[in-house]
Design a protein around this nucleic acid. Structure first.
Lengths: 190, 190
DNA sequence: TCTATTTATTGAACTTGTTCAACTATTCTC
DNA sequence: GAGAATAGTTGAACAAGTTCAATAAATAGA
């Protein structure tokens, strides 16, 4: 059943009844994306929140200078969202691109709002998920400010070897915040 | 009334009744800190979530190499918390130090949990606050990866002139992720 | 008000990371 | 399977930021 991994993921964060779990899942619709397809492009409004069933996505921005900066990669069991764009109907700064053939579960805004109303545990779920995300973002910022590119590279490859194996060095470099040329040099004298 | 600014802040995020507002506020207790006093020190467990009534705090970590890295500054109407430590009873990685005589409102964990139970809108409140925080942390990360130290310095001083005026250059540098010597050089050829 | 301490400035040498360009290897695609 | 496009490597010159040390300025205590 395609909803199994979503349900398991939700249960990691909050305790809830099967009925609640069914209600929540029922609002999520599957969508398939081919390699290189975009789920969201910079400038458009994000109309969904997503959960990755399989495959891999890269979430990135392109700044005025034309540099790509990767915010995160999302593989199986990761969430995909641009909260600011989704909640406030703002043009997104983010691109979400499938790095391989992928499948996601999506919920649209009307359904999400309905779910918050009908199933209060969903507020708690997303409150807890958001708080965990904050902790991760704070750690990432500190790591970026205190560690060298080589240290960050080693940490990333050691922590997420199964993600790294799906990525090109260019993509890894854009996540680490360095040029791919420099990453190549880091790898050389390892 | 000391609770006014807390109430106004809450109302910015969610719509709620006066009763709810009173209930929430009633759990928060005022505490006064003198300049240089710590509200939280690295290694101890964070027993509160706080809201700044006046004064200014610096939230920072000291890494293994001994470098101070400032996560954020909190002046009037900002929240102070270490979610990971508070929720999971983990030793905190953060220090929260008053940069001047300050006053905060604090809520402890038992009361916070009681509040989530008794007053469901609090889940929504913190869900929304957390989501806004994620957006801010993502922006900060991108800014750190894509902008030069000078660009970040100019953005910070232009965006938060009233905070910057309370800070030493050393503190600003530790927020920007550069040495204070280099900040001095940036300021010179401006 | 004097002294101790912290903060800010500056320069020189150094390290980290970038840019550009040329080349090689890989992978799409038809 | 050939050609086109993309990704990875390398080197040289450069720019951004650090480190260390010495000095000056500001602040905090007593």
């Amino acid at each position: 059943m395609i909803y199994n991994s979503l349900k398991k993921n939700i249960q990691k964060h909050v305790q809830l009844s099967n009925t609640e779990l069914e209600t929540i899942s029922s609002y999520f619709k599957p969508q398939v994306l081919k390699k290189k397809e975009f789920l969201l492009t910079q400038g458009s409004i994000c109309k969904f929140e997503g959960f990755v069933l399989n495959g891999c996505f890269r979430v990135f921005t392109i700044d005025k200078k034309g540099n790509e900066n990767t915010l995160y990669f999302a593989t199986k069991d990761w969430w995909l969202m641009d909260i600011d764009s989704f909640m406030n109907r703002k043009p997104s700064n983010l691109n979400m691109q499938a790095l391989e053939d992928s499948k996601v579960l999506l919920i649209n805004k009307a359904d999400k709002l309905a779910l918050y109303e009908s199933t209060p545990i969903v507020e708690k779920l997303f409150r807890i998920m958001s708080q965990k995300a904050i902790v991760a973002w704070q750690r990432r910022l500190i790591s970026n400010q205190c560690q060298t590119a080589k240290e960050r590279y080693l940490y990333f490859t050691n922590t997420y070897p199964n993600i790294v194996s799906k990525l090109t060095d260019k993509q890894v470099a854009s996540y680490l915040g360095i040029t791919h040329e420099f990453l190549s040099k880091i790898k050389k004298n390892n």
